[in-house]
Every structure is written in structure tokens, then in C-alpha cells.
């Protein structure tokens, strides 16, 4: 089997004296959708940010295409084909939708900008109608679509998605997950997804990981995890939603 696109090896991250990740081991292979599920505060977003070097891991290694990126500054990691749609979306509120998308393409030479822009407007037509509007005036769902599009504008090889479903109406969630699936199937986009919405996330994923208190406790194929009793009990209480 070829080397994974991303390998996280024994990573430990601290916030001051508080340890948030305790030796995380996981990997993402080219062309996969991998989901990481876990309760609030388990360290999912910390792992995602640690991959991007903000904060940097205190111990362990993060290997991207055979290269250790764990000591690299964030902006350099993001130039290696990694893009993130972060927790809370972090749209630039006083920039227009178009400017937000331009920021997404900041690491490119701009040669494909018009093509990529057209592609985003096909994926999420609402963004085209809103392109002159300030990011801060969009609804939550529109902001999420913008955050994902902004990440895609850099033509990443690895897309990191942090809680794309948070606070959104079920219909919007379904639309966003559908787009992710399509991008993966049609363009082979590799996706690492962090979610509290375990049902959607595991159904979409080829493989999944479960995180508890900063450690990976379970791993397996998405559908397999979804069928497991302990996963259902812990993360799908109240049924599919």
C-alpha cells in the first residue's frame, strides 16, 4: 500500500499546561473521506488545527506526503496543498463574498481563478447571487458554503472540514454533505472531516475514527463504526438526525 497523504503519529498538543491531545495516531489516504467523531471538547478541532500548525504539536510527527510538517509555520503548511474550512467558519465579515473567495486563492498564482470561481458558483449558486455582499451579512448556511468554497479555491489536495453541519438546518446540511461526496467521487478530493453529527459523518466516510479525551479509541470503515453498539449509544443517542 502506498504511503498515506497525511499521517499523524503520536501527536501531543498542549494549551499551556493542559494537554488536549494524548498521542493521536491516524492517517488519511489519497482519495478518501475520513471522519473523526467525538463529543464536545474531545480534541477534534485541536487535532485539525495542530495539523495546520496552530498550535504546533509538542510531541509526535505530522507527515504530509512523506514530509514532516509538524515544525512548519501555518502559512507554509497551507501552501503545500492543505486547506481548512475551520470551526465557526471564520468568514472575513467586512470583505465581500468575492473577496473572501479571492483570499482562498491567495496561495495560487491566479491562473485558474476565473475557472475555479465558476466552479464554486456551480456548486453553490447562492454565492454567485451574494458575491458583492459582505461576508458578515450572510446566513449561517451561506457562510458555511462560502467557507468550504474559500478552502476549495486553493485547489487543495487535502481538504480539512471542521464541523460543517454545526448550527445549520437539516436541508442545508444535506446539501453540503452531498457536495462533499460529489467532489470526492468526481475529482478524487481527499477530505478529512471532523463532526459531532456522527450519523451523517460516518455514513459519508470511507473510514472513521472516534476520539475521546484526546485519544483515538476506535477506528474502522464508516458504515462499520455506525453499526457498532458503543458508537450508537454514545454518539447517536436520539436517533439519526
Amino acid at each position: 500500500m502506498s504511503a498515506p497523504l497525511l499521517a499523524v503519529d503520536g501527536v501531543e498538543t498542549f494549551y499551556g499546561k493542559i494537554q488536549a491531545l494524548r498521542g493521536v495516531e491516524m492517517e488519511v489516504r489519497e482519495g478518501e473521506i475520513v471522519s473523526l467523531i467525538g463529543a464536545n471538547g474531545a480534541g477534534k478541532s485541536t487535532l485539525m488545527m495542530t495539523i495546520c500548525g496552530a498550535p504546533q504539536a509538542r510531541n509526535g510527527r505530522i507527515i504530509l506526503e512523506g514530509r514532516d510538517i509538524s515544525r512548519m509555520p501555518t502559512h507554509q503548511i497551507m501552501r503545500l496543498g492543505v486547506a481548512q474550512s475551520p470551526e465557526g467558519r471564520r468568514i472575513f465579515p467586512r470583505m465581500t463574498v468575492l473577496e473572501n473567495l479571492m483570499m482562498g486563492a491567495a496561495v495560487t498564482d491566479g491562473a485558474h481563478f476565473e475557472d475555479d470561481l465558476a466552479r464554486m458558483f456551480t456548486l453553490f449558486p447562492v454565492l454567485e447571487r451574494r458575491q458583492g455582499q459582505r461576508g458578515g451579512t450572510l446566513s449561517g448556511g451561506e457562510q458555511q458554503m462560502l467557507a468550504i468554497s474559500r478552502a476549495l479555491m486553493s485547489r487543495p489536495r487535502l481538504l480539512l472540514l471542521d464541523e460543517p453541519s454545526l448550527g445549520l438546518a437539516p436541508l442545508v446540511v444535506r446539501q453540503i454533505f452531498k457536495v462533499i461526496k460529489e467532489l470526492n467521487e468526481s475529482q478524487g478530493l481527499t477530505v478529512f472531516l471532523v463532526e459531532q453529527n456522527a450519523f451523517h459523518a460516518l455514513r459519508l466516510a470511507h473510514r472513521g475514527y472516534v476520539m475521546v479525551n484526546g485519544v483515538i479509541t476506535m477506528t474502522g470503515a464508516g458504515k462499520e463504526l455506525l453499526a457498532r453498539e458503543e458508537v450508537r449509544a454514545a454518539y447517536l443517542e436520539g436517533g439519526a438526525h
Binding site: 495546520c52 496552530a54 509555520p73 501555518t74 502559512h75 497551507m78 501552501r79 486547506a83 481548512q84 475551520p86 471564520r90 472575513f92 465579515p93 467586512r94 470583505m95 473577496e99 479571492m102 483570499m103 482562498g104 491567495a106 496561495v107 474559500r150 486553493s154
Partner: peptide, 24 residues
């Protein structure tokens, strides 16, 4: 300009700017 946009991006959200490859 791209420089001005990077400047405004850092002003509005420095962490996000670095996540987009901007050297803050």
C-alpha cells in the same frame, strides 16, 4: 490589490489569514 486584501484579512481574523497561506 492582493497585498491590501491580505492586510485587511489579517486585520479581521489573523488566524484565518494564516490558514489561507498569508504570512501574517
Amino acid at each position: 490589490t492582493a497585498l491590501g486584501r491580505a492586510q485587511r484579512a489579517c486585520e479581521q481574523d489573523r488566524k484565518m489569514a494564516s490558514l489561507l497561506g498569508v504570512d501574517v
